[in-house]
Design a binder for these strands. Structure first.
Lengths: 129, 129
DNA sequence: GAGTCAATGTCATATTTTATGACACGAAAA
DNA sequence: TTTTCGTGTCATAAAATATGACATTGACTC
């Protein structure tokens, strides 16, 4: 499965394709990058090039935003995931990535300013994982 | 497996990406299109956009050329495949695509002007399938 | 050897796509 | 009300692509 991973992380899509695939505007995509939610590669001509993984992240971000999270919240989620990834090395991990995302997500949602928002906009059990 | 097929046939790559992925020049890619070896989609702005399947075909074409086939030969191979695809509907097919390609390939190679070319440049059993 | 043809290189010009920075705006927060 | 956040929009510059023309190279023919 190593080759598939590699393919999924190859930066091969220009922003125009990503716009269509994610239904985000270039403005939005660049803004999320500016906010450090994604880290985009550039080609020799300074054009942003995206991987399948990048597109997954953008779709995740869309979901989080739909659920009422803001940039700061989403960023924290990814930061925590990052930490988990690191501590993953010297400890057997009882928690799957799935678990971690769910836990962090619930934490963020219950902690951030979600007062006055309809609870209906939440699917039970957290984001699409 | 229907969704995967769909994804493989989505035209999402600009020619620049295809150049890198196939190690072909834009001139070559356009020429193969001009010769009807590939049929390229265009986006709203008239730019060519390629699918994963298109890239596979281009890599096949490279292989065929390496093996000494010319445009006409390659075109015939694809035409015959096309026919097979059509007759495929009203008959149970004993031959797999793999078989068909091999048979057509051998036919073309033995029939076309391969005299005086080293037999070493042929891998036994036909092209990469 | 000269000519021909197939596949590709190269160049010029026009159009499209993208990058960047600035300003605007509506909704939510303070 | 005033800020802040996420996004829209616009102007300008640069990169990527389309197209058509001409050049080149190798193989084949005569």
């Amino acid at each position: 499965m190593k080759e598939k991973e590699l393919r999924r992380s190859m930066s091969v899509f220009p922003i125009g394709t990503v716009m269509k695939l994610t239904d985000l505007t270039a403005r939005q995509i660049r803004y999320y990058e500016e906010q450090d939610l994604i880290h985009t590669e550039r080609n020799e001509g300074n054009r942003r090039m995206y991987s399948l993984n990048d597109i997954d992240v953008l779709l995740e971000i869309k979901d989080y935003l739909t659920d009422g999270l803001n940039m700061a919240g989403i960023k924290r989620i990814y930061e925590m995931q990052e930490k988990e990834k690191l501590s993953f090395q010297n400890s057997t991990h009882q928690l799957t990535d799935h678990d971690v995302r769910r836990i962090l997500y619930d934490e963020i949602v219950s902690q951030s300013g979600m007062i006055g928002k309809s609870k209906d906009s939440f699917q039970s059990g957290g984001p699409r994982l």
